[in-house]
Structure formats: structure tokens, C-alpha cells
Design a protein around this nucleic acid. Structure first.
Lengths: 211, 211
DNA sequence: GTAGCCTAAATTGGCGCCAATTTTGGATAC
DNA sequence: GTATCCAAAATTGGCGCCAATTTAGGCTAC
């Protein structure tokens, strides 16, 4: 029984890129802001080689999730109020801008898919891990954005969302807010189904700001 | 005399990161779309070591300026009509969104600075290299965006702008369009000075679309 | 003459070692 | 008892080698 679990973990750490593993641990709050990421530790933790660790750290530094101090090492970025506010503002600009297109493009089957994803999110709130919840949320928003018809924009928003590394711990902690997010998902779908673009815009704005 | 020039070039290639050097050559059109970037060539071209080349290529692949094909190498991305269109759309969304804030925040001294930068661009059109022109353009737009008050947004737009790697060759070729850009810069400043946010929005839209 | 295969050259990419720098702990002097 | 300096341990990061894979060229067979 324990072997099965071990195999899954092993398979996961073999298959997925080390960069993603470190990224998820930062996003999940396992690696707290300010933590120094020593190469030897990561090497052992993720069962990988030195060059792999260094490539991962360099990529995360490019994404500005960790900071690189020459001859000192890499550490997880401290939460920055100004940056968080600015990123939220950018997200609002981008995600409200395509609200109209989303409403126009959405077919009945798209609305069904969104409803399913929103319900899946609700279920993960009840009995799912933090990571599963995070991914369910991502899946919903991704499908929503794809309706905007601009694939480049979908990638960009997904990328930007990761820049608020300190987000998961500080912003997802209260159960009330998570449940509120779940309700908002359904309200957004309602607005799309009703063809009300402006209401969708307002909902998206509130959804981003409440975080 | 020749030694002085050589020293400057040497100093430049020692100081600046290899990533930036390759990036500039792609943006300048020296390395054309589709070109295979062989590690040995880059090693010799930029007088650097193998690991440095590989880190640069990995970073550019992350930025999606080059594509990585496992066991085959890295090659400069081919121009992609759809992507270029989508990136333009994103730029329009972002840059028009902060037009209002720019008009509000702009002080007389800011307008003077912008005017100087716009004139510098005009001079580079007459007697400057392609790279100098590119940088003069970047400097003008950067100072314009900073007035928006969202530094994260400034970085983001700068980053996005680089994603249309094929841009420089195909889009900057006609002298008429470059001169048109110069005139638009001044018209944008006029709109800011007059406090007309909506006119600025329309000018920004046209400025991006004409490329 | 052409198509397919096989061999050799070239290129990528993984891995580990060693030098340079920093940090920490202890010892000594005040 | 505290501060400063020195030395040793640890950590980062540059560099080069070698194995694995791919590609190109030539030879052979049909």
C-alpha cells in the first residue's frame, strides 16, 4: 500500500520538470517567502542533479519568483504589497477587457463545461488538497479565458497569476473567501448565459480584488 | 584608434549578458527567423563559454523567442501571423487602459522629457543605426508608460513587445512608417498636454496597429 | 540511375570536479 | 564580558569532458 503511494510520488518527480516542482511548492506555501533555496537541499529533496537545480532556479529567477544574490544564492521573494496591487490591476485590465468577447463566443456547450468545472472546484473545497483546489481554480479560469479567442492572452494571464507567489498562503487561508470564490464562479457563468457582458466585467473585477 | 574601438566592443561583450547580446541580434534581424543557433557558433561569436550559451538559449526559449527541439537544438521562432495579431491586441488593451492615468499624472516637466525623447527618436531616424533607433523608441515608450504609475505594467509591456521577434525586419523596413511613428509620438504628447485621454487612446491604438 | 542503408562526423546535453567567495565558529585581546 | 579578527567549513558557480542522439555523405544493391 505504501509502495503504491511511493511509486506515484517517484513517477511524478521523475516525469515533471524540477522547475514545476519547486514552483508548486512555493505556490503551495511549502517553501515560505524569504527561504534560502540551497542547491544541495533541492538536489536531495527532488532527487535530481545539480545542473537541473540550477536551471530551475535560473528559470524561477527569470519569472521573478525567487531572487538571485550573486555568491549568496537564491531565496523566495518576500511578499510585496505594491507589486501585488499592481499585478491585480493588470489582471483586472486584461480579464475585463475580453469579457465582451467571451459573452459573444460562448456556446451552450461551453457554458456546460464551465458549469462542470465550477462544480468540480466546489467539490475540491469540500474534500480536496490545497493543490487540487488551486488546479481546479486554474482550470475554470483557463476555460473561461479561452473563450476570449486570444490564446496568447490566456498564457499571459496564467503567467502573471504566478507572479504573486505569496498569494496562496496569505490569500487563500480563509474558508469563507474560498467559498465566496466558488459562488462567484457560478455567478459569472450566469452572466455569460444571460449575455450580460458588463455584469461579467464587474464580477471579474470583484473576483480578482477580493483575493 | 582601432584599438579603442576594439576595447569598447570587448568591454561590452564582457560586461553585458550573453542573453541580451543574442536577443539584440534577433531583434536587429541579424539572426533571421528559422536560423538554427548552434552552440559552437554562438560560443565563438560572443566569445563566451558553453554553459553561458546554454543558459542564454534556455532563457530565450522561456521567453519564447527561440524554440527548443530536444536533441536537435534551438532555432529562432518563425513569424506567426496569429501570434503577432494577438500580441498587438494585448498591447492595445494594456496601453490604452492606462491612457487616462497618464494624462492625469503628467506634469509639465514630464511632457518636456517626452518631447526630448521624441526628438531624439527623430534624430535617430535621420542618422542612427537600427539598434539606436530601436532603443530610442523603447526609451520614449518606457517614459510614457511610467507615467501610468504601474511599474509592473511597464515591465510587462516591455517584455511582451519582445515577443514579436520577427517584428524588426518585417515591420520597420519602410522609412515612411518610421517617420509616421515619429510624428505620432509628438501627436501623443500633444494629446497629453491638452489633457485629452480619449485622443491619446486612439493614437496609441493606431500606433500599435500600423506596425 | 535511383533508392535505401550503413558508417562517420558533428552536435547536443548530462554530469562531476575544482576554484572562488562567503559564512560561521572559536579564540584572543582589550 | 564583549568585540574583533582569523581560520575552517560550506556553498556557489564556472568549466570541460564524455556519452547519446542525430545528420549527412557515400556506398551498395536493385
Amino acid at each position: 500500500m505504501a509502495d503504491v503511494v511511493m511509486d506515484q510520488q517517484q513517477a511524478a518527480s521523475d516525469t515533471r520538470d524540477v522547475t514545476d516542482l519547486v514552483l508548486q511548492d512555493i505556490l503551495a506555501g511549502v517553501l515560505l517567502p524569504g527561504t534560502w533555496l540551497k542547491q544541495i537541499d533541492l538536489e536531495r529533496r527532488y532527487k535530481c542533479t545539480r545542473p537541473e537545480v540550477r536551471r530551475a532556479l535560473d528559470r524561477l529567477a527569470q519569472k521573478r519568483l525567487v531572487e538571485h544574490v550573486p555568491n549568496r544564492g537564491y531565496h523566495v521573494y518576500e511578499p510585496d504589497g505594491r507589486r501585488a496591487r499592481e499585478v491585480s490591476e493588470i489582471r483586472i485590465i486584461l480579464e475585463t477587457a475580453i469579457a465582451g468577447t467571451i459573452v459573444q463566443n460562448a456556446l451552450p456547450e461551453d457554458i456546460d463545461t464551465l458549469r462542470t468545472l465550477a462544480e468540480h472546484f466546489d467539490q475540491m473545497v469540500l474534500n480536496g488538497t490545497m493543490l487540487e483546489l488551486y488546479e481546479a481554480n486554474l482550470a475554470f479560469h483557463r476555460h473561461l479565458l479561452v473563450l476570449g479567442g486570444n490564446l496568447e492572452l490566456v498564457d499571459l494571464i496564467t503567467e502573471i497569476r504566478q507572479r504573486t507567489s505569496s498569494a496562496p498562503v496569505s490569500q487563500w487561508r480563509t474558508r469563507a473567501r474560498i467559498e465566496q470564490s466558488g459562488r462567484q464562479h457560478h455567478m459569472m457563468i450566469d452572466a455569460i448565459a444571460a449575455g450580460e457582458a458588463e455584469r461579467l466585467q464587474e464580477l471579474v473585477r470583484q473576483h480578482i480584488l477580493q483575493h
